[in-house]
């Protein structure tokens, strides 16, 4: 109705019209593309979910809790275990469902221990040591266990919670991923046995 009062001195309008300088345009587009790229990569990462069966597993080193050892050493390197089936179990002492499977895991470990073809490794996820030790002794766990220092291993496996168990075949590739607890010993054996036979 009266836009008139918004142009008090119109003579400035006469100034030559200038667009956006090219170099600023370049910066703007680069920033925009950079932002989109960051989001794209992160989205890809978050959409990945857990590791896929068949993915090669990177080497990691796990130092054990005191009292545990593997072949006389207080730590384990995945790369040293080529040719063996490796079962990586993520757990925590505060995790109720982990307790369901703890005894089963231990007894399955006992059946394979002497064979030497299978290695069980327990990775303790964001846990405190005294409670973790209590948990281990409660369930009489004998296979080597250690804390996931810096949550590096669990971040690599992109675990979504505990318990989760990963089965790595002789070639070092992921053969099976179990999300959540096992129901029985036979369930675990049914996954390991075909892997040994390969």
């Amino acid at each position: 109705m009266n836009e008139g009062n918004s142009t008090p001195n119109a003579e400035v309008e006469a100034a030559p019209k200038r667009g956006v300088p090219i170099w600023i345009q370049v910066i703007i587009w680069l920033l925009l593309l950079g932002l989109l790229a960051i989001i794209a990569f992160n989205m890809k990462r978050s959409q990945q979910g857990s590791l896929k069966v068949g993915d090669p597993i990177q080497n990691f080193t796990l130092s054990f809790f005191d009292g545990y050892q593997f072949q006389g050493k207080p730590e384990i390197n995945l790369s040293d275990l080529k040719g063996k089936v490796v079962v990586v179990n993520f757990w925590a002492s505060w995790c109720k469902p982990c307790e369901q499977e703890a005894a089963a895991l231990e007894s399955v470990w006992k059946t394979y221990e002497s064979g030497g073809q299978v290695v069980f490794v327990g990775v303790d996820y964001v846990d405190t040591e005294p409670e973790a030790r209590k948990y281990l002794s409660n369930f009489g766990i004998t296979f080597p266990n250690g804390p996931d220092v810096g949550t590096k291993i669990s971040q690599y496996f992109r675990i979504t919670g505990v318990p989760e168990t990963y089965f790595i075949d002789q070639a070092g590739n992921l053969a099976y991923a179990q999300i959540g607890p096992f129901g029985s010993e036979s369930e675990i054996q049914a996954i390991i046995d075909p892997l040994i036979q390969k």
């Binding site: 918004s6 142009t7 008090p8 001195n9 119109a10 400035v12 309008e13 100034a15 019209k17 200038r18 667009g19 956006v20 345009q25 703007i28 587009w29 925009l32 989109l36």
Partner: peptide, 20 residues
């Protein structure tokens, strides 16, 4: 994003201030 920014750059010169 790309469309809006492109439009803005395209019209930039028309968006000159009318006063100081």
């Amino acid at each position: 994003f790309v469309t809006s920014v492109a439009l803005l750059i395209y019209r930039w010169a028309d968006l000159k201030a009318e006063s100081q």
